[in-house]
Design a protein around this nucleic acid. Structure first.
Lengths: 212, 212
DNA sequence: AAATGTGAAGAGGTTCACAGCG
DNA sequence: CGCTGTGAACCTCTTCACATTT
């Protein structure tokens, strides 16, 4: 399955769960598009057909098998063990948020550099020294790493996670990680997103001025 | 300036600040590409030229004016007033993070629905009832809204922010916001990002199995 | 008649190749 | 000669149009 489709598949899954909860058992691409809100029915058909889904012409798609199929592709069935590197506000909030939101995500190890934080516990999990990262990540059998450290420390954190066998990283630091290992990386740059918004606002403002 | 370039411009700005701090006064597109890490020098030249930057052939770009120009385009010079809707872990962490990270962002109003949270203070700012949103957002003159509420409440929060004159929204809820007003929206879907990672992991796993 | 599945056209953005300038 | 600036080729994903199936 192609990269940019994945977020859409995830959106379909969410929408289909809603439809399921509402007691529906079948849905058309058009109906799903309306539910999702920002994706065309054509796009949905292309995605589902690429996925090998079985739609019935004249009827639509059976929801239950579709949900299962999407769940499988998206890895929603497995449980995943997460290592958090950097336990400041961001790391802490992420841990709380993701475990509350989806039971399939478990925080399995937490690391920080600051002696003030090391040794504290969160939900019973001790915050360890990043110096012990490789061993502890291996021991805790983490699949996914979350980097919530300052930009300067992000690259080395990523390398150590990769060295410990982690093959997927969610990176909150505003840095392009470069890794030799084949690691899936998703970047979330909060300050960057805010800047995109402010650039739109200033652009809108100056075009208003230009018109005046 | 075209949409998808903005995150890149932001990356350039960050890299140029580093170069500036390192005492450099001029840089080539090639050099900047190396610093940024994941963008080609051609792309950089295209972006900077579209921006109207003055490079000197044979020399490169003067850093100082370039940084100023980028700062202007990205709206880094103004201060911005933020309204946070939903003051759970996520809203709380975002407030702490963004104010610590960039002084130009000020939290100007905070809202929640829960009586347990309403009336609390954060850095002197009272958490108000969402019922008062429109009036309070206007009064506090907020430019940017941050939605950190459950998915079901996101759409109405967005509508009320838009009605109060907010023209830029950072949305943490996994919902496509639909607004009549011309509002810039950036979505950050943490659980979605995690699912993208898990889908890659399961795909990698099944291709390994297929090979075996 | 209704809705899927899909080849072809289109759009948007990136890379190439090189002309142009300092 | 070095590096910018840019038209053209390219590529990737999305939309269109319609043949196809129930």
């Amino acid at each position: 399955m192609i990269d940019p489709a994945i977020p859409r598949l995830y959106a379909y899954h969410r929408a289909l769960r809603e439809a399921q909860a509402a007691g529906k058992s079948t849905i058309t691409s058009e109906g799903l598009a309306a539910l999702v809100g920002s994706i065309s029915s054509t796009q949905i058909r292309k995605d589902l057909s690429a996925l090998g889904a079985q739609g019935r012409r004249g009827r639509g798609y059976a929801i239950n098998p579709l949900v299962e199929q999407l769940a499988w592709v998206l890895g929603l069935e497995h449980d995943w063990r997460i290592a958090i590197v950097g336990f400041g506000y961001l790391g802490h909030a992420f841990a709380t948020f993701i475990t509350a939101r989806e039971a399939r995500f478990r925080i399995a190890a937490i690391f920080d550099r600051s002696p003030a934080v090391i040794g504290q516990r969160w939900e019973g999990i001790p915050v360890r020294d990043v110096a012990d990262l490789e061993a502890a990540v291996r021991e805790a059998d983490c699949n996914i790493g979350v980097i919530a450290v300052p930009a300067a420390a992000a690259q080395s954190s990523a390398q150590r996670l990769a060295a410990a066998g982690v093959r997927a990283i969610l990176n909150f630091a505003p840095t392009a990680l470069r890794l030799r290992e084949p690691v899936a990386v998703r970047n979330i740059d909060l300050a960057g997103e805010m800047s995109i918004l402010t650039s739109w606002l200033t652009a809108a403002e100056s075009s208003r001025e230009a018109r005046a």
